[in-house]
Design a protein around this nucleic acid. Structure first.
Lengths: 197, 197, 197, 197
DNA sequence: CATGAATGAGACTTCATTCAT
DNA sequence: CATGAATGAAGTCTCATTCAT
């Protein structure tokens, strides 16, 4: 079981250093030091720096779906402003609890727009998250698939964007923004429900 | 007058290279080449690389308000789904027409979350943009200031987030997302109007 | 018996990789992979990389004498241009059939001129080959030992040099050069014969 | 005139280190030290290590023709064993006076057989030298072009091969070999002359 | 015997910055 | 003002070798 234990440590360390320093400035030297291994070991397990970070990003993407169980429970309840607020609390508090999570995503986004090698990874990651969100929106908001699918990228953008603003600016009214978001989503859900009634 | 000409070229070149390569990978050598000046001249006009990019970011922030005149005109009209869609078309098409604009902003955001020197710059930039958007929302949506202020960071997040998704993924339904956004904003504006009636 | 099987495979693999990549670029990793053994096993059988290659060179030197039987048969015949051409065909076709043989020898020569550790090996190898060639020349050309001994290093040089030129340059007239060589040797042998008559 | 003075020093240093250590073992660090410049300057003038050595090889190839004037004078004289010996003395003594010359050539040959990038360089170099030798042989030996052309690669091989043997083995009878070579060439030249008479 | 994870040195290269001209 | 040669540090990656299993 101790097998590839150090490989795991390297990935964890890479995650931390990546969030702190950014893609280019995250040196293998610092990662190795943080992981408590020799610098050469990184080259042993990963073909190069890019491959290491690709693995880091791959895992981050997978973690995005962990909130599913809780939200699925909410899906059984009636659609209400209260429910929406409760569900929105998941991404809201996640950005508060784990700032490096947001940092990492922005690093990935910035990278995805210029690095062709990361581009494929990004595309898949984004699409997976949109699909995931679409499913949740259908579940919680009782929206038709078409509307849910269009709403997903918007929420994806808002969760990340608000988290970023909160991290950059301590005076930013994070809670107020989420209040407005909940209100707006509730209005939209209601309208769609009426329209389809 | 001509003495500042090369300085200007350097800034323009830095903007382009920064958007293409990213913060760390944007080398002074490439910038100098793109600007058509000697490498050493960059050091003459800017204390160091960071100061050059700070200037680039400062200007980008200013450009954000150029859409004001058009939107102010829209503000005179009645609030309608049509108006909202017309106004949303400004950020929507800007991301289409000038991809490097989005790239640069994500570069700035990613940087702002880790570089303390850029942090102040970012904070100011974000706040200015939110104020600007708040004003526009009041103007176009006829919303009370409190609601407008809460909505601003959301729109800020959505504009950038959708632009990024469009750049990363060619199959992404950019238009559909903006349609949903317009619909949702319209529902929200109507609700607030009714609530305050 | 089986215990030396892997050792043998390592040596064979080292020969191939050495010829393909050259001394410094031939990595133990690639050799191990080519041999189908673990990297560490090389260190088990050979003190270090140099010792492994020393063994490879030692064997190559031994293989040089394999042509002896055929040539000894030719030695019984009368000296003639025909005989000379037939004997020259041995090194000529060897370079054609086994290019890595030539590559390896040049690798060894280049190495021998700078690496003191290999120098002794080289000296012995060269001397052995000259002695071998001297014997053959006496046998085939019926030349006095003194002349044969002086001719040996020349032929040694020519065989390798022509093989190298053939490998480097596909347009090189390999056959034409060997024709001229045969002609020249024949003239020389005749002259010596007349001189001693 | 001081312009690119250091570039020249780098090339000279590269030549020396290359001959001493060999292609792969010749480090840019050592070259820089030998040239008395910073390591980074090598990267400033040459795209990479290969390009630097390509320049070194290119120059070496050009130096090969410097012997032309002397030999051209010999060409006016009658063909005799004496003349041949005098002309052969040029390559013979060159290998004695400048051992690194031979080392470099073997380095180049070994390299040419495996490095595709160097291959073109090598082919051109070899062909140029053969043409050069062909011309000399016609001049000195009064041989028809066809014979001269076939003899050239043989002499090319012998000059290098004997030089190498001399460098590797101090006991090797370098003079004796050249004596035999002169004798053999003389016999060949005479035979061709008679044949064409 | 055999493995392959692990190490640390060192190679190449790139880069921001400086400075003589 | 402007140049571009020059520097030295730092980063990534490769490699021969060692060692616990």
């Amino acid at each position: 079981m101790k097998e590839q234990e150090k490989r795991e440590k390297i990935i964890q360390a890479a995650y931390q250093v990546l969030a702190e320093r950014g893609y280019d400035a995250a040196s293998t030297k610092e990662i190795a030091k943080a992981a408590g291994v020799a610098q050469g070991l990184i080259g042993y397990y990963f073909a190069n720096k890019d491959m290491l970070f690709a693995e880091v990003f791959r895992r981050e993407s997978e973690r995005y779906c962990e909130s599913l169980p809780f939200i699925r429970d909410q899906g059984n309840r009636e659609v209400s402003a209260e429910t929406i607020r409760a569900v929105l609390n998941v991404p809201k508090s996640r950005a508060e609890d784990d700032p490096s999570w947001i940092k990492l995503r922005y690093e990935l986004f910035a990278l995805g727009m210029r690095n062709e090698a990361v581009s494929a990874n990004i595309r898949e990651t984004l699409e997976r998250k949109r699909r995931h969100l679409t499913e949740l929106i259908q579940l919680v908001g009782k929206l038709p698939e078409q509307n849910a699918r269009a709403l997903a990228p918007i929420l994806l953008a808002v969760f990340d964007g608000l988290g970023m603003q909160r991290l950059c600016d301590e005076d930013f009214d994070y809670d107020g923004a989420y209040e407005a978001l909940a209100d707006m989503l509730d209005a939209y859900v209601k309208r769609i429900a009426e329209r389809n009634a």
